[in-house]
C-alpha cells in the first residue's frame, strides 16, 4: 500500500488506466454482440492512447506522442470504421455461444490473469520505468485476447481478438521500456492494417464458399 501511495499522481492515473484496460479485456471476452465488441475495441484503443500520452507527458519522451497519434488514428478511428463497414456488408451481428460458456470463460480468464502477473513479476522488477507495475496487466491483456480468439467461433471476433492482442503488446512495450523504436512501431501499425485488409478479403471468400462466417466449416479442410 505504501508503495502505491508513494507513486506520483501521473503514475497512479496510469495504473488506473491499466486497470480499465484489463476490465475492457474481460468485457470483450464475454461480449457476444459483435457491434458492441467493436465499440469495446475502440474504447480499448482510446484508453491505450490516453495512457501513452500520459507517459509521454510525464517522462518527456517525444516519440511517444507519435505512437499515441498512430494509436488514435489506427485503432480508435480507422479499424473500428473498417470493422463496422464489414459487419454491415456481411450482415453478421451475433456470435453464437462457443464451446465454453461465459462463466467458465471468466474463470479461465481470472486464472490467466493470475498467471500473467506471476510471470511478469521478475521482469517488472528489472525494469526501471515509471509504469513497471502495469507490465503484468499488459501481459494479461495479451493472454486474454488470445483466449478470446480460442473461444470464439465466428471469424470477425477472432480478428478483433487478434487486434486486441496487438493492443496488449503495445501496452507492454510502453510500460516496460517506454515504447518500441519508432521504426518498429510504424512497421507493426502497417502490418495490422494490411492484416486487416487480408482478413477482410478472406471473410468474403469464406462466406461465398460456405454461405456463413462460421469457421467450424473450415474443419472440412482437414486431411481425412
Amino acid at each position: 500500500m505504501s508503495a502505491l501511495s508513494a507513486l506520483p499522481l501521473s503514475g497512479q492515473i496510469i495504473n488506473l488506466l491499466a486497470a480499465v484496460l484489463l476490465l475492457i479485456s474481460f468485457a470483450m471476452l464475454v461480449q457476444r454482440r459483435i457491434l458492441s465488441l467493436i465499440d469495446l475495441f475502440a474504447a480499448q484503443g482510446a484508453v491505450l492512447c490516453l495512457s501513452t500520452v500520459l507517459v509521454a507527458v510525464t517522462t518527456g519522451q517525444r516519440h511517444l506522442y507519435f505512437s499515441a497519434a498512430i494509436t488514435l488514428v489506427l485503432k480508435v478511428v480507422l479499424l473500428p470504421w473498417i470493422l463496422h463497414r464489414l459487419i454491415r456488408r456481411l450482415n453478421v451481428k451475433w456470435d453464437v455461444e462457443g464451446l465454453i460458456n461465459i462463466p467458465t470463460t471468466m474463470l479461465v480468464g481470472i486464472v490467466v490473469v493470475v498467471v500473467a502477473f506471476n510471470l511478469a513479476l521478475p521482469i517488472s522488477q528489472l525494469a526501471g520505468t515509471l509504469t513497471r507495475p502495469t507490465l503484468g496487466i499488459a501481459l494479461a491483456t495479451v493472454l486474454l485476447a488470445f483466449l478470446m480468439m480460442i473461444t470464439r467461433s465466428k471469424a470477425v471476433p477472432q480478428v478483433i481478438g487478434f487486434l486486441s492482442m496487438e493492443n496488449g503488446l503495445f501496452f507492454a512495450a510502453t510500460s516496460a521500456t517506454y515504447g518500441m523504436p519508432m521504426v518498429v512501431e510504424m512497421g507493426i501499425a502497417l502490418d495490422v492494417l494490411i492484416g486487416m485488409i487480408i482478413f477482410g478479403v478472406f471473410f468474403f471468400q469464406i462466406r461465398t464458399q460456405f454461405d456463413s462466417l462460421d469457421i467450424s466449416h473450415l474443419e472440412q479442410l482437414k486431411e481425412k
Binding site: 510471470l119 488470445f146 467461433s153 474443419e219 479442410l221 482437414k222
Partner: peptide, 28 residues
C-alpha cells in the same frame, strides 16, 4: 500424431496459447 490436426482454428490457437504459457513459465 494425426489427432493433433483437428481442423478447428480454436484448437490450433489453443496449442500456441499453451506453448506460449509453457515457454513463458520455462524461461522465467
Amino acid at each position: 500424431v494425426t489427432p493433433l490436426q483437428q481442423g478447428r482454428i480454436g484448437i490450433y490457437l489453443l496449442y500456441s496459447f499453451c506453448t506460449l504459457l509453457l515457454l513463458l513459465m520455462f524461461v522465467r
